[in-house]
Amino acid sequence: MNALAVEIPWGVLLAIKAVVILAVVPLGALVLGYTFLLKMMSHMQSRLGPMDPGGFHGWFQLIGDGIKFLQKEDIVPDEADRRVFALAPTVVVISTFLIFVVIPAGPRLQVANLDVGVFYALAVSSLSVIGVLMAGWASANKFALIGALRAAAQLIAYELPLLLAVVGVVIQAGTMSLQGIVSAQQDGAIFGWSGIGNPFILTQFVGFLLFLIAAQAELTQTPFDMPVAESELVAGYMVEYTGFRFLFFFIGEFGTATAFAALAATLFLGGWSIPGVHGTAADLLGPLVLVLKLMAVAFLMFWVRFTYPRLREDQLQALAWKVLIPIALVNVIITAIIKVAI
C-alpha cells in the first residue's frame, strides 16, 4: 500500500506543482550560488568569502544581494528596444523553469512524465539563447551585441554534442522518458551483475564527459564563457541590465546550472534512485538523493569553471565540431552495436 495515495484534486495538484517549480529554480540558484560561487571559489582562492551576513559563514549573503537588486533602480538605455529589453530576462528564466518540469525527484514526484522527456528538456533549455539574443540586441550596446552573437554561435555548436551524448543513454535505456531512464538504471544490470543497478556513468562514461563539457558551454561557464567574458566584453549581453532584471539573469544562470546538474544526475547517476529502494521510501528519499547527486555534478562543473582560462570563440567552435561531435558519434555507434549484440 502506498501511504501517500491521497486523492488530491487535479487543480490543487497543478497549483502545488507550479509552486514547487517556481520555488525550485530560485532555491537551486541560491544553493548553488552560495555553495560554489561564494564559498567553494573563495576557499579555492585562499580567501574566506562572505562570513558575516546571517551569522553562519555568510549564508544570507545571496539573499541579501537579491533584496538589494530588487531595490535598485531599473535603468533602461535610451536607445534600447524597451519591450524586448524587458522581456529578455523573463525568456531566459522561463526556459529554466521549463526544464524542471520533466526532472523526476521520486517515482511519483514529477510534474509531468513526458514520453519524450529528454528531448523536451534539451529543447526547452536552448530557448534561453533566444532570451540572450533578445537581450544583446535590445540593449543597443556593441559589447552586448557581440556577446549575444557569441552565445548564439556557441549554443548552436554545443547543442549537437549535448544531444549526441544523451543518445547513448537513450539507446541503453530504450526510452526517452526520464522516469524510464531512472528505472532502467535502478533495475538494470551491468553485464548480468545488478548489485548497484546500472548507473549509466559506468557504461556511458564518454557520454557523461561529453555531456558535462557541452553543458558547460550551454551554461556559458568558463572555459566557454565568451558571451559574458568580463575581461573582454565587460559582461556581454548582461552589460546594460540592472536591478531585478539582472537578478533574473543571475537566477537564470544558476538555475540552469542546477537544471543541467540535475539532468546529468538523472541521466548518468541514476537520478533519485537508490538500488533496491522502491515505493514510498523512494518518494521520501528521492529528492534528497537527487540533490546529493546533483551537487556532486555541480561541484565538477564549478571546479572547472574556477580553474580554467577562457577559450577563444574560434577555438571553441573547432573543439565542438572537430573533437566533441566525432567522439559523440563514435560513442553512439558503439553503444548501438553493443545494444543490438546483447
Partner: peptide, 13 residues
C-alpha cells in the same frame, strides 16, 4: 594575466 584570459584563481594567488 590569468584573469584577463578568463581564469579567476591565479589573480588571487
Amino acid at each position: 594575466m590569468g584573469l584577463q584570459v578568463g581564469a579567476l584563481t591565479p589573480a588571487f594567488y
